[in-house]
């Protein structure tokens, strides 16, 4: 078992040092084997939390810590954190022309392996084909340039393809359901569920219960004003679907 532990995390946007903190003391523990859902109103720090855990240089930790099995990640650049087992399925994945999807995923896998133990190309292609088939992605998506001209839904599916190929310890999935049609939602959920097991944990950011019908979480957290204000089981999400967030306590209020 591996543990991701966030303690008293305070975060600012580096480019706006005079603005107030976006995260104001977040505490969260995710063990492998668990699925956590993170919900909450727009603009209250969910993506900021995911990006900060991953190591996006746009954010600055002003207090607190992020640890994996006791080791602090704060001084590690994003690529080192990734190799340690973190994965972030982004709300807005970047497009990169001239680099094919397959070439990129292979480079990502090889970055985790020793120079004299790179993944054999045939083995890689076989696994890529099988994973793309699971996600019902057309074969030519492997040779297309990374996210270039992909539709919103295709980009999300491509994030899950990378997730399944890389097999991290912890997947932070930021609105992986946005832009997905009903069939795609089911397919993508199937992909995430296939990873469930004692060596895989996930923090799933979503606004919709629908996703959590497919990927049933062990814990549901609500974030408001940069703090986790409520934690419960899968039922909490169902309740919020009916009641909304208004009645929950919060800090200064949702500006």
């Amino acid at each position: 078992m591996t543990t991701l532990e966030i303690t008293d995390l305070h975060v600012k946007v580096k480019a706006e040092p005079t603005h107030p903190e976006i995260l104001r003391g977040v505490n969260l523990v995710v063990h492998t084997g668990e699925i956590h859902a993170l919900m909450g109103p727009n603009g209250n720090g969910k993506s900021t939390l995911a990006e900060t855990i991953m190591g996006n240089p746009a954010y600055e930790v002003t207090q607190g810590d992020i640890r994996i099995d006791g080791q602090s990640l704060l001084d590690m650049p994003v690529d080192a954190r990734a190799r340690l087992g973190l994965f972030l399925g982004m709300q807005y994945p970047a497009e990169i022309a001239g680099v094919t999807n397959a070439e990129f995923i292979r480079a990502a896998i090889n970055a985790r392996r020793a120079d004299d133990d790179q993944v054999p190309i045939m083995q890689f292609l076989k696994e890529l084909d099988a994973t793309m088939a699971t996600l019902e992605m057309p074969e030519d998506m492997a040779d297309r340039y990374l996210n270039q001209g992909f539709s919103g839904g295709e980009k999300k599916r491509n994030e899950i393809l990378q997730l399944m190929m890389i097999k991290p310890h912890f997947a932070l999935l930021d609105e992986i359901d946005s832009g997905l049609d009903i069939d795609a939602l089911r397919i993508v959920s199937k992909g995430v569920n296939s990873l469930r097991g004692p060596e895989f944990g996930s923090l799933i950011i979503t606004h919709y219960q629908r996703l959590l019908d497919y990927i049933v979480p062990d814990f549901v957290h609500v974030m408001k004003d940069g703090e986790i204000i409520e934690t419960g089981g899968a039922d909490l999400a169902k309740e919020l679907e009916k009641t909304g967030y208004e009645h929950l306590k919060g800090g200064v209020g949702n500006a």
Binding site: M54, G55, N56, P57, P77, V78, D79, A82, R83, F87, L88, M90, P93, A94, I96, A97, G98, V99, E103, F104, I105, A107, A108, A111, R112, Y145, L146, Q162, I166
Partner: peptide
């Protein structure tokens, strides 16, 4: 950032972006 978030080291990520740019 996107490339490095998948574990690619900075020099590898840069090379990919540059090759990709020249590819056109």
């Amino acid at each position: 950032y996107y490339l490095m978030s998948r574990g690619l080291r900075e020099d590898t990520a840069k090379r990919l972006v540059i090759r990709g740019f020249l590819e056109a």
